[in-house]
């Protein structure tokens, strides 16, 4: 009888430990998945990257000509200025009907870098002077600082690129709002080591 009791207790203890371990393991996995999902940076309380584009109209209207830049890459004052001059959109005519223009301006302003909690948005905002209203993301001090080591032959003089405006040409996860160094592949050159 005693032996049986010992066996039962031991197995139940082992069982408990195992199940606890399993639960813990699950918990850990859940937490990791959750962290990835929300892309939270644990140490700074900011979300990694920039908020991805979820607006179908924006993707269609703006993304049919160029990379659908995330609204969080510029302050609201820049978007307002740009959307009020679509007739001369970097020397192209990008005029929209009034209704679409209003909807998209609202979307851009609402999701601009101004109040965003994402890392890249915060850093772009922090790099700007209060009185500057850049129309090009490539003109923001943060962008310039992050790309100043890249020689011209890799981008401007790269026949496969030509300019810095094609984010997704090198940042393979740009569409998801992720611009990590590890995910850079420069056309014709491959990985970029900082």
């Amino acid at each position: 009888m005693k032996k049986l009791k010992v066996i039962i207790t031991t197995t139940s203890i082992i069982g408990l430990l195992l199940s606890a371990n399993l639960v813990y393991g699950d918990d850990d996995r859940y937490e990791k998945k959750d962290r990835e999902k929300h892309s939270y940076n644990r140490y700074f309380g900011k979300k990694v990257g920039v908020a991805p584009v979820k607006n179908a109209l924006y993707k269609e209207e703006c993304g049919s000509c160029h990379f659908a830049y995330q609204p969080g890459l510029l302050p609201s004052r820049s978007w307002n200025k740009m959307m009020n001059n679509l007739e001369d959109h970097f020397d192209e005519n990008a005029e929209l009907d009034k209704e679409t223009q209003t909807i998209l301006t609202k979307y851009l302003v609402k999701n601009s870098a101004d109040d965003s909690n994402y890392k890249r948005s915060r850093r772009i905002m922090n790099s700007l002077r209060n009185n500057s209203t850049p129309l090009r993301i490539t003109d923001t001090p943060y962008f310039i600082r992050k790309h100043d080591e890249i020689p011209r032959r890799l981008v401007q003089n790269n026949p496969k690129l030509g300019s810095f405006s094609k984010c997704a040409a090198c940042h393979v996860n740009a569409e998801t709002g992720s611009y990590e160094d590890d995910d850079v592949r420069i056309p014709g050159f491959g990985k970029w080591d900082d």
Partner: peptide
């Protein structure tokens, strides 16, 4: 229709 009008306007001006 919307698309035809949009591109006529943009591209004629350009």
């Amino acid at each position: 229709v919307k698309k035809i009008k949009k591109w006529f306007k943009r591209n004629c001006k350009w």
